[in-house]
Design a protein around this nucleic acid. Structure first.
Length: 774
DNA sequence: CCGCTACGGGG
DNA sequence: GGGTACGTAGCGG
């Protein structure tokens, strides 16, 4: 049989026997489902093997063997207990853990499917031979049938109904289903919501996609569909052969799993994995698509949509809805190769890869390496242990040199290439190399400023595999300079993710390889190296503008000094040990730095850099969130732009005063003042009555529908009482409170930028006072 | 400072 | 299938 591409896996029970199901695509793009019977197992550690084996046999458990594995760095003989039924494993384990001869049990909490993949050395999202399951590394992707969909809902009567569903496939099909008539060719109209949803399921069955993509489908589109299907008594048959959707509980919410297809919720992947390396601070489909694809959503405000729907003017809504599916599809085509690359490296199924956090990806990477090394996978911490770990006092973190506030020119940015990974490798930081007892290691590899040290004689488990990753990544980066292969780019990215997550995983309370001393050591070495760089730069006469963890911003006086600084960084690398390396990122013509205000604790680092090509790199100014009104957001962005590109603080302040005067004189546009906050609980559950809760209460009293999950739109009006008491539904508000909008919205947003120029809030307020008189 | 509550994405 | 998993800001005490 020819090679297959593994897309997904799962299992079923046949007469009490576990059978692994492998969902694969063949070379011709056909879906093939392979069935592999597979025995599950776990390990028992005991010094009284004979007794334990005897007791197991008395219980009728005879499928056992003695195996030699590496446990915590040394070889141990363990009892391996098998069962043909994977669900028996936890039951047997529950029994044995009570026996006094049993010291510990292992790998009882590694999922059945993943055990199979690890034991077979089978990488998801890769090709393999179905005869012997040998992985065939290949850069080709199979022909995949991808569908993205999106729904629109609107409140009608007392319930939220689905009014429209759009989908787009990578084979060019675009369709909108709606419950109102339209003349548009791509819109199919239905006389009821039920008919529309059923038609959607029928069309999915016909298209038979391998992959279904959504943007926040786990929490929204699938959840809403489920709700409506229950209400309208429709079978939610989206899966292969009409199978329904399963909602798997995980973390905060649940994942919508469709049998025989892979549901990829791209929002999860963006939120968990991509967001730290993205410029945008809000993860809306609009912003994310703009940044990754260079194209955003069709603009349509919620109120506009409601109005249009009421007026039966559905053309714009249909176009808007279809665009969302198209963007989701385009994002999928862009991100799936990245997800696949991570899947291969960490041996996780794309369904999981797209939903996992860094910690879970690293964990899977280390689990597969354990399996390869014949090591026992450490257990997950129990509930109490997690609590204990959380209670541990925190250790000193990274170094931050507070920025020199204000505008600066000629800013050079240097940073360590993967600082923590290279420290872990160079200093051999791993749970089992900690304080090995060798005098030489104690002398030569001690943690700066601490009493711990790490072994230098034997490579640790984590440093060894991390070194492979770091070295591989450098090789791939070199190759990328020659060829611009997107496959290589994605591989490089997967390697980067795993390398960078290792440090955090040492300190993550839920980690299987938790090692506080290791995390502490990474931080201490990190401080040591960045301090070394800063001091060396100062000694050479450079001005340090700002430094944080692994980066260092130098301000150059002129062109000549820019050259000198670049040369300086090249030399410093000769003085750094192992694979630790300082890199030159870029020189920016202008930058703005804002240090945190006194009362602000732990505020993010705020700076904005203007690069040579004229683009703005903004960090830490977070008024793009919806709990700020539109006016506050606009004011902040405009001020930032004025300051950096026009370099005129004066103009910016003048602009701010103008806005304030407008607000004060009652000329602000109402829609710019609306604040949006979601009701995340049933109204009765709120103990703390925040403004949006108060508004919801008022709405209810006035006979308007209010429910959990609703976004409350409100405006703070004039009058007496607390802010909450004066909050009114946006459509009912007769006026607005200028003082509130000035003091709680516009000024704070503006001051986040202007505080860098010593502009005093009170002064701005005073200077606008004259025009406040009414 | 600590502890509690709410938020995000989606419409 | 071992199931509970986030990280952070803003508020009130």
């Amino acid at each position: 049989m020819s090679d297959l591409f593994l897309l997904d896996a799962d299992y079923e029970l046949e007469e009490g026997r576990g059978i692994i199901l492998l969902y694969c695509k063949d070379k011709h793009g056909k879906m093939q489902v392979l069935k592999k019977p597979y025995k599950s197992y776990f390990y028992i550690q005991t010094s009284s093997k004979d007794i334990v084996i005897k007791r197991l046999e008395e219980e009728g458990i005879k499928d056992i063997e003695i195996v030699e594995k590496i446990l915590n760095g040394s070889k141990k003989k363990l009892i391996k207990v098998y069962s043909e039924n994977p669900r028996e494993i936890p039951k047997i384990r529950d029994k044995v853990k009570e026996w006094k001869e049993v010291e510990e049990e292992y790998e009882y909490a590694v999922s059945y499917v993943y055990k199979f993949l690890m034991d077979s050395d089978l990488e998801p999202a890769n090709w393999f031979s179905p005869d012997d399951l040998a992985v065939k590394h290949s850069n080709d992707l199979p022909e995949l049938n991808i569908l993205a969909f999106d729904i629109e809902i609107i409140e009608e009567g007392n319930e939220e109904k689905i009014i429209m569903i759009s989908y787009a496939t990578n084979r060019g099909k675009k369709q909108v289903l709606a419950t109102k008539e339209s003349s548009l060719s791509f819109v199919k109209s239905f006389s009821s919501e039920k008919q529309m949803i059923e038609a959607f399921f029928d069309e999915i069955a016909k298209i038979d996609p391998d992959i279904i993509c959504t943007y926040n489908g786990d929490a929204f589109d699938f959840a809403k569909l489920k709700e409506r299907c229950e209400k309208l008594k429709i079978k939610m048959s989206i899966g292969k052969n009409g199978e329904t959707v399963r909602f798997e509980r995980r973390g905060r919410g649940s994942a919508a799993s469709v049998k025989g297809r892979v549901h990829i919720d791209l929002f999860n992947f963006v939120d968990h994995i991509l967001s730290p390396s993205m410029k945008t601070e809000v993860l809306t489909l609009d912003e994310v698509a703009r940044e990754l694809l260079g194209e955003g959503k069709i603009e349509l405000k919620w109120q506009e949509m409601k109005d249009a729907w009421k007026k039966k003017d559905i053309e714009r809504i249909a176009e808007y809805c279809l665009k969302d599916s198209e963007l989701t599809l385009a994002l999928a085509e862009y991100l799936l190769p990245q997800i696949f690359a991570i899947s291969r490296l960490t041996m996780t199924l794309p369904f999981d890869t797209s939903r996992y956090y860094y910690s879970q990806l690293v964990e899977h990477f280390l689990m597969r390496k354990s399996a390869e090394d014949n090591r026992i996978i450490p257990n997950m911490p129990k509930h109490d242990e997690i609590e204990q770990r959380r209670q541990l006092p925190s250790y000193t973190g990274a170094i931050v040199i507070e920025p020199k506030t204000g505008l600066h020119e000629n800013i050079l940015v240097f940073d360590f290439q993967s600082l923590y990974p290279t420290i872990i490798v160079t200093h051999n930081i791993s749970p089992e190399t900690l304080n090995c007892g060798h005098t030489e290691c104690r002398m030569k590899n001690a943690v700066p400023g601490g009493k711990n040290y790490f072994c230098m004689q034997q490579k640790g488990f984590i440093p060894r595999h991390l070194e492979e990753v770091v070295i591989e990544r450098r090789k791939v980066k070199e190759e990328l300079k020659k060829t611009k292969s997107s496959m290589l780019k994605n591989y490089q990215y997967a390697l980067k993710i795993i390398a960078n997550a290792m440090y955090g995983y040492f300190g993550y309370a839920g980690s299987r390889w938790f090692c506080r001393e290791c995390g502490e050591a990474c931080a201490a070495f990190g401080r040591h190296y960045i301090t070394f760089v800063i001091n060396d730069a100062k000694e050479k006469g450079f001005e340090i503008l700002y430094a944080d963890t692994d980066s260092c911003f130098i301000k150059a006086k002129d062109k000549k000094e820019i050259e000198q600084a670049i040369q300086w960084h090249e030399k410093i690398n000769d003085k750094l040990p192992g694979i630790i390396e300082l890199e030159y990122r870029d020189t920016y013509p202008v930058g703005l730095f804002v240090s945190r205000a006194k009362e602000e604790v732990g505020a993010k680092k705020r700076y904005a850099l203007l690069s040579k090509d004229g683009s703005l790199e903004i960090r830490g100014f977070e008024t793009v969130r919806r709990d700020w009104c539109e006016l506050a957001k606009t004011v902040q962005h405009k001020i930032l732009k004025m300051v950096l590109t026009e370099r005129s603080v004066e103009n910016a302040v003048k602009y701010l005063k103008d806005v304030i005067n407008q607000v004060k004189s009652g000329k602000a546009k109402k829609e710019d003042l609306i604040i949006y906050t979601q009701l995340t609980m049933p109204l009765s559950a709120y103990k703390q009555i925040a403004p949006h809760v108060k508004v919801a209460q008022k709405m209810k009293e006035r006979g308007r529908p209010v429910g959990e999950g609703m976004i409350i739109e409100y405006i703070i009006t004039k009058g007496k009482g607390s802010i909450a008491e004066r909050a009114e539904p946006a459509d009912e508000a007769k006026d607005y409170d200028p003082d509130y909008y000035i003091n709680n919205q516009v000024l704070p947003a503006a001051m986040r930028v202007l505080q860098a120029f010593n502009i005093k809030e009170d002064l701005v307020r005073q200077e606008t006072l004259s025009s406040w008189v009414k």
